[in-house]
Protein backbone atom coordinates (compact mmCIF):
# COMPACT_ATOMS: atom_id res chain seq x y z
CA UNK A 1 0.00 0.00 0.00
CA UNK A 2 1.28 3.45 -0.83
CA UNK A 3 2.10 5.70 2.05
CA UNK A 4 0.53 9.04 1.18
CA UNK A 5 2.96 11.91 0.97
CA UNK A 6 1.68 14.89 2.83
CA UNK A 7 1.63 17.69 0.33
CA UNK A 8 1.72 21.03 2.05
CA UNK A 9 0.38 24.04 0.26
CA UNK A 10 3.10 26.09 -1.33
CA UNK A 11 3.89 28.21 1.67
CA UNK A 12 4.17 31.88 0.97
CA UNK A 13 7.37 33.36 2.24
CA UNK A 14 7.19 35.81 5.10
CA UNK A 15 3.82 34.70 6.47
CA UNK A 16 3.11 33.26 9.85
CA UNK A 17 2.13 29.83 8.53
CA UNK A 18 5.46 28.81 7.04
CA UNK A 19 5.27 25.05 7.58
CA UNK A 20 8.10 22.77 6.68
CA UNK A 21 8.19 19.05 6.98
CA UNK A 22 9.71 17.84 10.20
CA UNK A 23 9.98 14.19 9.20
CA UNK A 24 12.88 12.83 11.19
CA UNK A 25 13.32 9.13 11.21
CA UNK A 26 14.01 8.32 14.85
CA UNK A 27 14.94 4.93 16.21
CA UNK A 28 11.52 4.15 17.67
CA UNK A 29 9.55 4.70 14.51
CA UNK A 30 10.51 3.27 11.17
CA UNK A 31 10.08 4.90 7.78
CA UNK A 32 6.53 3.61 7.39
CA UNK A 33 5.32 5.94 10.13
CA UNK A 34 3.94 9.28 9.00
CA UNK A 35 4.19 12.50 10.95
CA UNK A 36 1.25 13.34 13.15
CA UNK A 37 -1.41 15.68 11.80
CA UNK A 38 -2.33 17.80 14.77
CA UNK A 39 -3.49 21.13 13.39
CA UNK A 40 -7.18 21.76 12.92
CA UNK A 41 -6.66 23.34 9.49
CA UNK A 42 -4.77 20.30 8.20
CA UNK A 43 -7.43 17.91 9.43
CA UNK A 44 -10.20 20.05 7.98
CA UNK A 45 -8.41 20.24 4.66
CA UNK A 46 -7.98 16.45 4.53
CA UNK A 47 -11.66 15.94 5.24
CA UNK A 48 -12.66 18.56 2.70
CA UNK A 49 -10.55 16.93 -0.03
CA UNK A 50 -11.92 13.47 0.84
CA UNK A 51 -8.44 12.23 1.63
CA UNK A 52 -9.44 10.63 4.93
CA UNK A 53 -9.52 7.16 3.38
CA UNK A 54 -5.78 7.45 2.66
CA UNK A 55 -5.08 7.54 6.36
CA UNK A 56 -7.17 4.59 7.55
CA UNK A 57 -4.42 2.00 7.75
CA UNK A 58 -1.38 4.20 7.99
CA UNK A 59 0.66 4.05 11.21
CA UNK A 60 1.16 7.50 12.69
CA UNK A 61 3.85 8.71 15.02
CA UNK A 62 2.49 10.14 18.25
CA UNK A 63 2.86 13.91 18.47
CA UNK A 64 5.43 15.31 20.88
CA UNK A 65 4.32 17.38 23.84
CA UNK A 66 5.08 20.52 21.89
CA UNK A 67 3.13 19.71 18.74
CA UNK A 68 -0.16 21.28 19.75
CA UNK A 69 -3.17 22.48 17.80
CA UNK A 70 -2.66 25.90 19.35
CA UNK A 71 -3.14 28.90 17.07
CA UNK A 72 0.30 30.04 18.12
CA UNK A 73 2.13 26.86 17.15
CA UNK A 74 5.09 27.55 14.95
CA UNK A 75 7.54 24.82 13.84
CA UNK A 76 10.34 27.36 13.35
CA UNK A 77 9.87 28.52 16.94
CA UNK A 78 10.00 24.94 18.19
CA UNK A 79 13.22 24.29 16.30
CA UNK A 80 14.82 27.47 17.58
CA UNK A 81 13.92 26.60 21.15
CA UNK A 82 15.36 23.12 20.75
CA UNK A 83 18.63 24.50 19.42
CA UNK A 84 18.84 26.94 22.30
CA UNK A 85 18.13 24.24 24.87
CA UNK A 86 20.93 22.97 27.06
CA UNK A 87 20.82 19.81 29.21
CA UNK A 88 17.16 19.39 28.40
CA UNK A 89 16.17 22.61 30.14
CA UNK A 90 13.41 23.41 27.71
CA UNK A 91 11.62 25.74 30.10
CA UNK A 92 14.55 28.07 30.20
CA UNK A 93 15.10 27.86 26.45
CA UNK A 94 11.45 28.66 25.82
CA UNK A 95 11.56 31.58 28.24
CA UNK A 96 14.64 33.01 26.57
CA UNK A 97 13.07 32.66 23.14
CA UNK A 98 9.91 34.37 24.35
CA UNK A 99 11.92 37.26 25.71
CA UNK A 100 13.69 37.45 22.35
CA UNK A 101 10.33 37.72 20.61
CA UNK A 102 9.27 40.41 23.05
CA UNK A 103 12.51 42.29 22.43
CA UNK A 104 12.00 42.17 18.67
CA UNK A 105 8.54 43.57 19.11
CA UNK A 106 9.72 46.36 21.36
CA UNK A 107 12.49 47.40 19.01
CA UNK A 108 10.26 47.35 15.97
CA UNK A 109 7.34 49.13 17.65
CA UNK A 110 9.72 51.83 18.81
CA UNK A 111 10.91 52.27 15.24
CA UNK A 112 7.32 52.30 14.05
CA UNK A 113 6.29 54.96 16.53
CA UNK A 114 9.26 57.11 15.57
CA UNK A 115 8.63 56.74 11.85
CA UNK A 116 7.54 59.92 10.15
CA UNK A 117 6.08 58.82 6.82
CA UNK A 118 3.56 56.16 5.90
CA UNK A 119 6.06 54.48 3.55
CA UNK A 120 8.53 54.14 6.35
CA UNK A 121 5.86 52.63 8.52
CA UNK A 122 4.88 50.11 5.92
CA UNK A 123 8.45 49.01 5.44
CA UNK A 124 8.87 48.18 9.12
CA UNK A 125 7.99 44.55 9.85
CA UNK A 126 6.26 44.29 13.20
CA UNK A 127 5.52 40.59 13.28
CA UNK A 128 8.45 38.94 15.08
CA UNK A 129 7.92 35.56 13.46
CA UNK A 130 8.01 37.12 10.00
CA UNK A 131 11.33 38.70 10.97
CA UNK A 132 12.65 35.35 12.13
CA UNK A 133 11.54 33.69 8.89
CA UNK A 134 13.12 36.43 6.84
CA UNK A 135 16.36 36.27 8.84
CA UNK A 136 16.57 32.53 8.27
CA UNK A 137 15.94 32.95 4.56
CA UNK A 138 18.64 35.58 4.27
CA UNK A 139 21.25 33.68 6.23
CA UNK A 140 20.75 30.16 4.89
CA UNK A 141 23.93 28.91 3.26
CA UNK A 142 23.70 27.11 -0.08
CA UNK A 143 26.90 25.10 0.24
CA UNK A 144 29.04 23.85 3.04
CA UNK A 145 32.67 22.84 3.27
CA UNK A 146 33.78 19.35 4.00
CA UNK A 147 37.34 18.23 4.74
CA UNK A 148 38.20 15.58 2.19
CA UNK A 149 41.59 13.89 2.27
CA UNK A 150 43.34 13.23 -1.00
CA UNK A 151 46.90 11.97 -1.02
CA UNK A 152 47.84 13.10 2.49
CA UNK A 153 46.38 16.56 1.85
CA UNK A 154 43.12 17.62 3.43
CA UNK A 155 41.12 19.89 1.14
CA UNK A 156 38.11 22.01 2.09
CA UNK A 157 35.63 20.93 -0.53
CA UNK A 158 32.36 22.79 -1.17
CA UNK A 159 29.48 20.36 -1.24
CA UNK A 160 25.71 20.80 -1.48
CA UNK A 161 23.72 21.16 1.69
CA UNK A 162 20.19 19.97 2.33
CA UNK A 163 17.51 22.46 3.25
CA UNK A 164 17.19 20.98 6.70
CA UNK A 165 20.87 21.29 7.39
CA UNK A 166 20.99 24.80 5.99
CA UNK A 167 18.21 25.85 8.33
CA UNK A 168 19.95 24.24 11.26
CA UNK A 169 23.22 25.93 10.43
CA UNK A 170 21.77 29.39 10.15
CA UNK A 171 19.78 29.09 13.38
CA UNK A 172 22.86 27.77 15.17
CA UNK A 173 24.95 30.67 13.87
CA UNK A 174 22.40 33.11 15.23
CA UNK A 175 22.57 31.54 18.67
CA UNK A 176 26.38 31.32 18.72
CA UNK A 177 26.81 34.90 17.65
CA UNK A 178 24.22 36.10 20.17
CA UNK A 179 26.13 34.35 22.94
CA UNK A 180 29.26 36.30 22.15
CA UNK A 181 28.31 39.41 24.05
CA UNK A 182 29.34 41.62 26.98
CA UNK A 183 27.97 40.39 30.28
CA UNK A 184 25.64 43.38 30.82
CA UNK A 185 23.73 42.72 27.63
CA UNK A 186 20.99 40.13 27.78
CA UNK A 187 21.12 37.20 25.42
CA UNK A 188 17.50 37.72 24.37
CA UNK A 189 18.09 41.39 23.50
CA UNK A 190 21.24 40.51 21.59
CA UNK A 191 19.55 37.74 19.66
CA UNK A 192 16.61 40.02 18.87
CA UNK A 193 18.92 42.62 17.36
CA UNK A 194 20.78 39.98 15.40
CA UNK A 195 17.53 38.60 13.98
CA UNK A 196 16.36 42.06 12.99
CA UNK A 197 19.69 42.70 11.29
CA UNK A 198 19.40 39.36 9.55
CA UNK A 199 15.98 40.25 8.23
CA UNK A 200 17.49 43.44 6.82
CA UNK A 201 20.21 41.37 5.17
CA UNK A 202 23.01 42.82 7.23
CA UNK A 203 24.83 41.91 10.40
CA UNK A 204 27.21 39.26 11.63
CA UNK A 205 25.24 36.19 10.59
CA UNK A 206 24.88 37.35 7.02
CA UNK A 207 28.60 38.09 7.08
CA UNK A 208 29.27 34.57 8.25
CA UNK A 209 27.17 33.18 5.44
CA UNK A 210 28.84 35.31 2.83
CA UNK A 211 32.26 34.34 4.20
CA UNK A 212 31.34 30.71 3.84
CA UNK A 213 30.07 31.26 0.31
CA UNK A 214 33.27 33.14 -0.55
CA UNK A 215 35.38 30.26 0.71
CA UNK A 216 33.30 27.81 -1.28
CA UNK A 217 33.78 29.95 -4.37
CA UNK A 218 37.50 30.06 -3.73
CA UNK A 219 37.68 26.29 -3.36
CA UNK A 220 35.46 25.49 -6.32
CA UNK A 221 38.39 23.82 -8.09
CA UNK A 222 38.19 20.97 -5.61
CA UNK A 223 34.47 20.52 -6.01
CA UNK A 224 34.93 17.33 -8.02
CA UNK A 225 36.57 15.66 -4.98
CA UNK A 226 33.06 15.29 -3.57
CA UNK A 227 32.32 12.64 -6.15
CA UNK A 228 35.06 10.20 -5.13
Amino acid sequence: MLIPKLVYPQALLFTRASIFKTAVRSASFGPQFIDPIFKHEDIDRIIANNELKNYTDVPVKPPTSFQTCSTFYNPVKEKFINYMMKKGNKELAREVFEYTVKSIKRIQIEKYNKATSDEERESIILDPYVIIDKAIENTKPILKLRSIKRAAVTYQVPIPISDKEARFKCMKWHIEIAKDKPSEVRFSDNLAQILIDGADNKGKVVKKKTDLHRQCEANRAYAHYYFG
Binding site: R16, T71, F72, K105, I109, P128, Y129
Partner: peptide, 13 residues
Amino acid sequence: SKKWLQTSEGREE
Protein backbone atom coordinates in the same frame (compact mmCIF):
# COMPACT_ATOMS: atom_id res chain seq x y z
CA SER B 1 -4.08 48.67 17.50
CA LYS B 2 -0.76 49.29 19.21
CA LYS B 3 0.82 46.45 17.21
CA TRP B 4 1.58 44.52 20.38
CA LEU B 5 -0.55 41.62 19.24
CA GLN B 6 -0.13 40.58 15.64
CA THR B 7 -3.21 38.41 15.06
CA SER B 8 -6.87 38.47 15.94
CA GLU B 9 -6.89 34.68 16.09
CA GLY B 10 -6.51 32.59 19.16
CA ARG B 11 -8.53 34.77 21.55
CA GLU B 12 -10.23 31.75 23.06
CA GLU B 13 -6.82 30.31 23.73
